[in-house]
């Protein structure tokens, strides 16, 4: 996983609430055994006509948003399914940060596993950032994870919060399986105790 430190890039305004995972990546593209290459179908049904041509009004089909690294979106971003293909598609397109007033829980968790930073802000802050992103002359934001703030084009900063573990994993590009495996003794201990208390949970499948 790539480290996340400071990110400066074009922010695409998606002023719509409830952008669900079927919108982010339609289900037919979940039929893959890989994690990569999904950027070309990100937001497919909003972004392309059925013949594959671009819908000119869609934000990521317009300059300067074709190279967006950040999305500023309405409330409840990522609701719906648990498909990790949603953050994979965002990442493959080049999006490393999504800013919204709220995120669906599973999507939120999935982002951190892939080096994407989802940032929760207040409605007032979102409105300001949405306006910044909508300024085609200068839609760049800087997201600083070290100091936990977003720097707006006018120089004003918007602070945000994130729990320490997730912040550390993103900053260091850490894989949490390795970290958990260091707790092997505790897992062994838990299993031994549970096997005593609830032996039926450990029974092998019936023959």
């Amino acid at each position: 996983m790539d480290k996340f430190n400071t990110l400066t890039g074009v922010a695409a305004p998606m002023d719509m609430i409830n952008i669900d995972t079927d919108k982010i990546i339609p289900k037919l593209h979940l039929r893959t055994i890989k994690r990569t290459g999904l950027g070309k179908v990100l937001f497919e049904e909003m972004r392309f006509e059925t013949d594959g041509s671009e819908k000119p009004d869609f934000i990521l089909n317009k300059e300067p948003y074709r190279n967006s690294k950040i999305i500023v979106a309405g409330d409840n971003f990522g609701c719906g399914s648990s498909r990790e293909h949603a953050p994979w598609a965002l990442l493959d397109f080049g999006i490393r940060c999504v800013i919204s007033t709220s995120f669906a829980d599973i999507f939120y968790n999935n982002c951190f596993k892939n080096g994407i930073l989802p940032i929760r802000v207040t409605k007032d802050q979102l409105d300001a950032l949405m306006a910044d992103a909508s300024d085609t002359e200068n839609p760049e934001l800087t997201v600083d994870l070290v100091n936990m703030e977003i720097k707006r084009p006018n120089g004003v900063t918007v602070p945000f919060e994130l729990d320490a573990f997730r912040r550390e994993c993103l900053l260091d590009g850490l894989d949490d399986i390795g970290l958990t495996m260091q707790k092997g003794d505790k897992i062994d201990g838990f299993e031994a105790q549970q096997n005593q208390a609830q032996p039926w949970l450990n029974s092998a499948p019936p023959a």
Partner: peptide, 22 residues
Amino acid sequence: MGVGTSEIEHILATQTLRSPKP
């Protein structure tokens, strides 16, 4: 609870999940 692919991998390897308490 529904989880993502990386979390499944984590469970397969460790039989645990890291999560804040809802």
